[in-house]
């Protein structure tokens, strides 16, 4: 029996789901090895009977929490895809300010009281609400990594993400280190698996895949200081995707 897969999105840009669609011909392979029973963005068909749930997006409101809890109950395996689901991503930037201030900045004096669509709390990653079995990080996710994780789950292997920094992949691609180009980069403390795509285009890593569990934060701060990066600049880059994990 082919595993039944359902794809859901919460507060997100749907860019990660787009990467699944962007598998092009491999998409046909995917729907051959699993049954996609629900994928609101691309399909009208829907079923509440699924084994594997893929979640994109962050949790912002009580109604989102209810929805993700229901999904967790139905699914045997829950996989968070993309930075918003895995870490909170860009959505967590607003946690810097109180919710009321943020609402006022965007909606001014609009009457939002009692409206459940606007009942937001500080952004949460999916694992701050329910248990997540596997993560596919990135902003957006890397198509090849997605294929690797799904293949592993289908073959009964445990999907393993790299536990080493982006530098490993960057050096293997023989890139010139972006520090030499006058930029700074979070590659040494960020999880690899994206094949160092941003530094390969001469843009420093922003840490969208999340910092490593054993990231060498002090050593990284030393290096940044050596290259003249100010504390303010450091904080902003560290907190872009890894909110509060780079606290100085």
């Amino acid at each position: 029996m082919k595993p039944r897969v359902a794809i859901f999105d919460f507060a997100s840009c749907e860019g990660c789901e787009l990467q699944i669609v962007n598998l092009e011909e491999k998409l046909l392979d995917l729907i051959d090895i699993v049954d996609v029973v629900s994928f609101r963005e691309a399909m009208k068909e829907h079923s509440n009977d699924y084994d594997i749930a893929l979640i994109e997006g962050s949790i912002m409101r009580p109604m989102d929490e209810e929805r993700i809890k229901k999904i967790r109950e139905r699914a045997k395996v829950l996989i968070a895809i993309g930075a918003c689901a895995c870490l909170g991503g860009v959505n967590k930037l607003r946690n810097e300010w109180p919710v009321e201030e943020v609402k006022k900045e965007v909606y001014g004096d609009a009457p939002l009281e009692g409206n459940k669509f606007f009942d937001v709390f500080p952004t949460k990653a999916v694992d701050e609400v329910v248990k997540v079995d596997f993560y596919i990080p990135g902003c957006p996710i890397d198509r090849n990594e997605f294929a690797k994780v799904i293949t592993a789950v289908a073959l009964g292997r445990k999907p393993r993400l790299p536990t080493y920094p982006v530098c490993v992949e960057c050096k293997k691609r023989e890139n010139i280190c972006v520090f030499e180009l006058g930029q700074f980069c979070l590659g040494p403390i960020t999880r690899a698996g994206c094949n160092a795509i941003c530094p390969s285009f001469q843009d420093g890593c922003e840490g969208c895949r999340g910092f490593l569990d054993d990231a060498k934060m002090d050593a990284q701060k030393d290096v940044l200081r050596k290259y003249g990066v100010t504390v303010d600049q450091m904080m902003k880059k560290f907190n872009f995707y890894n909110y509060r994990k780079g606290v100085l």
Partner: peptide, 13 residues
């Protein structure tokens, strides 16, 4: 080793 990022650059190059 306190300054080491364990980034793997040395062994790669």
């Amino acid at each position: 080793s306190k300054k080491c990022l364990t980034c793997g650059t040395c062994t790669t190059v």
